[in-house]
Design a protein around this nucleic acid. Structure first.
Lengths: 246, 246
DNA sequence: CGTTTAATTGACATTATTCAACCCGGGTGG
DNA sequence: CCACCCGGGTTGAATAATGTCAATTAAACG
């Protein structure tokens, strides 16, 4: 099997697996639709912008590999990462609705995406109900994740924010088979955490230190060791239902 | 014309008007679809819960009148308002995707909603393309608003947060014809602002005071006077494109 | 009028940011 | 091989932003 087929299939499987509970019999249709509509692959090297704010995002992409940030840079130099997308996630799901993107998309690692040539409107739903359902599900889940992040940023202190983010990372990576036992492997440095959590780099460092002093989790370059998931989830008051994995 | 017809029509018009630029010819179809599928009306008095976290939200509702909060209460007693919905907005747009809501919906004022009996899946798109487009647009716009709120909560200070929220309120209320000149009429007290902005009530008060000292905006019970929109927008670095009104 | 709810103010505590310095491991060029 | 440099990471001290507590005022309502 060529690289093309197998990595595409893996991404489609990730997507199917995440949505399993909501999809019912449409799971097979989804995989079939994606294989049918997949077009060219594009690779981005780490750090490269994929879409800039106010750009038109003309197509839907499925991530085969790599991490993508959706972020906004403010005039003052501050940055907020709104979202991160993983293999099996769909990019630009709203491209058919809106003229332009309000955020930047950036490849955090080397990223490989496949363009999906989806028809518009009713034809999408008639001919490719699996993909249509996946698109709707993606938008709904993204919204739900954003709503949860609003709660974190608005009403949790730095320790709770970090703990919650780690729980979410574990759940999302677990859903695509990227957890190795109790360690999270990720391409995020402390500055990335700062821009996800909305706090300063230095405070991220201090907060990780607290987690590690309490033997709850340990930050290392490129990975995080979860020493005590139970207390971590408790700290965060983590309820994974907002991810809708079931 | 009965109250039923006219207020339903007004809500449908609001929705159509907001989406005008994206809808093209589907605008008329939307109004027709809503009239066809509108079922019973429900009224909630101010303060009443509409949906509680973990409830099943079985139907789509169109708001005819009133303000609805989507919020999460934390164990510690803190509350974060994630979203607010206005006349012409759709509630539970994701009800067909997910088993349960991850947030509370609460009537902030007296609220009147109409249940829309939408069919599932492909039938929705074939027979009611106007409504289908409106649902998709609603989910996309909600996501975009949430993303912008993440930026506010994460990387703007209290003055910028408040200024941005006021700009957004003006834009959203303007889109449904609820601005009277330069005053915003709204049912939010300072505690509501606190729970929207993720800061303390007292700090909301201090921040309004700063705006009023600088003759930019003035808080009064039930309304906010915008004295200098230009400087307000500048403070917030407000770019309305994320609302996708065009 | 009294009662209630929301707004306001000041004093103080806590949290997080900023600034400055230092460390550490991994290149890189001499 | 070594010296240096560079991007993170780590730490402490000073400062700024925001939260908490307590008390007061104002408006709203029967």
């Amino acid at each position: 099997m060529s690289r093309t087929d197998s990595s595409l299939e893996k991404a489609a499987e990730h997507l199917r697996h995440k949505m399993a509970s909501s999809m019912g019999s449409l799971g097979d249709a989804l995989v079939r639709d994606i294989k049918t509509l997949a077009r060219d692959r594009t690779d981005f090297s780490a750090g490269r912008p994929i879409i800039k704010e106010h750009d038109r995002c003309p197509q839907i992409y499925l991530i085969e590999s790599g991490w993508v940030f959706r972020s906004r840079g403010l005039a003052s130099g501050r940055r907020q990462i709104v979202n991160y997308a993983l293999p099996g996630d769909i990019l630009c799901a709203d491209s058919m609705l809106f003229k332009q993107s309000s955020f930047d998309l950036t490849a955090r690692t080397a990223v490989s995406v496949v363009r999906i040539e989806a028809p518009q409107g009713a034809e999408l739903f008639e001919r490719y109900p699996g993909l249509a359902a996946a698109l709707a599900w993606t938008m709904g889940q993204e919204e739900s994740i954003l709503a949860e992040r609003v709660v974190s940023l608005g009403r949790r202190d730095s320790l709770e924010k970090l703990a919650h983010a780690l729980c979410e990372l574990e759940a999302r990576l677990g859903a695509i088979g990227q957890m190795r036992g109790r360690t999270i492997e990720l391409p995020l440095n402390q500055e990335d955490f700062a821009d996800i959590l909305g706090i300063s780099v230095i405070h991220v460092n201090r907060t990780f230190r607290r987690l590690s002093d309490d033997k709850i989790a340990e930050y290392k370059k490129g990975q995080i060791e979860l020493l005590d998931r139970e207390r971590l989830a408790e700290l965060a008051a983590f309820d994974p239902s907002y991810l809708h994995f079931d």
